[in-house]
């Protein structure tokens, strides 16, 4: 018994280490590369020695003329998308959760919108935004990202709201609370993890989007980080020390937010998929 227990432990760890080497190596390698100085980044030495490790790449990347602007753009668009998505998804999910016929309709909308080829809806989006004069404007990109993030957000939040017993809000109505009050005082506090997951999800959708920004952004006024990464990647001679640094800067916020939302993330992602 004892021997088979040890064997089980060792096998499990070997398998886990194999998996996590595969999963973490690319991230660690790019992070490590971002600290190598330009003279050794293009070399086949795996360990060039301490004297070649530097933070100069970060200073150089941040002082690139467009960089602060790009970070600011990405942040404004991602935060705008987060606020708008959470607000609309909350209102819609509350109604969908409490009104029978909306429940079915919302499921249908969500399922079908998950099948959208984004390259197809991108065309009408572009045409609408052009007509409204919102091409190359924050608000045009924020609205687009919100639409992309909304269906799944709605689905997740509805899953959370469905779990709040209906007699709780009915009791509150009897005590004279309005709907907004029921929502903000009773349902939202209970569903706080759901809100956190939706906020995280919306932020990720916007922060990581390349496709829609590539069409809707046409100048430095709205360029985001993913676009910048792409322009670094197609250069004639790729400056890997700058590219890997910019990539780390692009990844770090997502990992920080992930470590905060991680506890509820899986539950939230599966909330809509769990069978009643």
């Amino acid at each position: 018994m004892k021997r088979s227990h040890t064997l089980h432990l060792v096998t499990t760890y070997i398998i886990l280490i194999a998996y996590f080497t595969f999963l973490l190596l690319p991230i660690l390698w790019v992070t490590y590369s971002s600290f190598k100085d330009a003279s050794v980044i293009n070399s086949s030495m795996i360990w060039p020695g301490f004297k070649h490790l530097t933070v100069m790449n970060y200073i150089r990347t941040i002082s690139l003329a467009d960089f602060p602007r790009v970070i600011l753009n990405t942040l404004i668009i991602a935060l705008g998308t987060t606020v708008l998505t959470v607000t609309i998804a909350t209102l819609a999910a509350y109604s969908a959760s409490r009104i029978q016929f909306l429940s079915k309709a919302s499921l249908l909308t969500v399922v079908s919108s998950q099948m959208y080829p984004y390259v197809l809806v991108m065309i009408p989006f572009y045409m609408i935004m052009m007509r409204l004069g919102l091409v190359d404007k924050y608000i045009g990109i924020i609205l687009t990202h919100t639409v992309i993030a909304l269906p799944f957000s709605l689905w997740m939040l509805k899953g959370y709201f469905d779990r709040v017993p209906k007699n709780l809000d009915e009791a509150a109505y009897i005590d004279g609370c309005g709907h907004i009050k029921v929502l903000t005082r009773i349902i939202l506090p209970i569903s706080a993890p759901g809100l956190a997951v939706v906020a995280f999800f919306a932020f990720m959708v916007s922060w990581g989007d390349y496709l829609f920004v590539s069409i809707l952004s046409q100048s430095k006024a709205t360029t985001t980080l993913t676009i910048l990464l792409q322009t670094f990647m197609v250069g004639r001679r790729i400056q890997w020390e700058i590219l890997s640094t910019a990539t780390v800067i692009c990844i770090v916020p997502t990992i920080i937010l992930f470590s905060i939302a991680q506890k509820w993330l899986v539950e939230g992602l599966m909330a809509g998929a769990v069978k009643e």
Binding site: V30, G208, Y210, L229, C250, I251, T254
Partner: peptide, 8 residues
């Protein structure tokens, strides 16, 4: 992490 970053 963003897909654009994964590609890098």
């Amino acid at each position: 992490i963003p897909i654009a970053a994964t590609v890098v």
